[in-house]
């Protein structure tokens, strides 16, 4: 190892401060993990393949058993199902044994939506922002199904909108009781696993007729309602 790279490593060690625990997102379709170029069959019998699934988890808060609340230091996380680096959120200073409930928003709140140019995961260059009608896209699901009589059988759901009556952000609250992985699995820090089951989203949907929803409105509100049911705390089998 050259001297240069040793110095680099030394400096890097300051950044690689180990997380105490983490919130891991586990995207699934029923009992299968979500992967690219893979066919899934919805409960409605539709064959589905995914090209792009991205969504915002914001304002994550941890309710502890002594009724104290701890706020995530980052206001919003952009989760990209096909980018593993985004599937783990570090939870610093959270005592998992005392964790009772996790609260978060699926999407971006209205105040953030009118706050101008923001950085990090909220930078519009992430492609989760509408130009012609300002506002964040809370959830993007894109893929294909032979059931969609569209160009290349594509379906596109871009769910967003921050103005009433089409405010599409959704609050999610999940009990963590008995679901915390106490074991330290090798190099992976212990944590909470948040399962996101997209089969529940598509179980509600008539994909043949509803395959292109890309602006705020009634349809987006309905999809936003469906989307909260996807989240659950995954209890690992010991």
């Amino acid at each position: 190892m050259s001297v240069k790279s040793r110095i680099l490593l030394f400096l890097l060690s300051f950044y690689a401060y180990p997380a105490i625990a983490q919130l891991s997102i586990l995207p699934v379709f029923g009992d299968q993990p979500i992967a690219e170029n893979t066919w899934y069959v919805s409960t409605q019998g539709d064959s589905i393949q995914f090209d792009n699934i991205r969504f915002y988890l914001s304002n994550i808060q941890f309710e502890m058993d002594d009724k104290t609340w701890i706020k995530d230091s980052v206001s919003a996380h952009l989760i990209d199902v096909f980018d593993p680096a985004t599937l783990h959120i570090a939870l610093k200073k959270i005592d998992l044994k005392r964790l009772k409930t996790i609260h978060f928003n699926l999407g971006i709140d209205s105040l953030t939506n009118v706050s101008g140019a923001l950085g990090g995961d909220l930078d519009p260059q992430k492609g989760m922002y509408w130009a012609w009608q300002s506002g964040y896209i809370n959830l993007k699901i894109e893929g294909r199904s032979p059931r969609c009589k569209t160009r290349k059988n594509i379906f596109q759901y871009h769910i967003g909108g921050y103005l009433q009556p089409f405010y599409s952000m959704r609050k999610v609250e999940l009990s963590v009781k008995n679901a915390v992985a106490h074991r330290n699995q090798g190099a992976i820090p212990q944590g909470v696993i948040l399962a996101v089951d997209f089969s529940l989203f598509f179980g509600n949907l008539s994909i043949a007729t509803q395959n292109s929803i890309m602006m705020p409105g009634k349809a987006a509100m309905q999809l936003a309602d469906y989307s909260t049911s996807m989240f659950s705390i995954h209890a690992p089998k010991n």
């Binding site: 101008g116 140019a117 519009p124 130009a131 012609w132 009608q133 300002s134």
Partner: peptide, 14 residues
Amino acid sequence: GVNHLDMQPLAPLS
């Protein structure tokens, strides 16, 4: 349709 001056350039851009 654009709610903030900062976001205005995104419209003609895209």
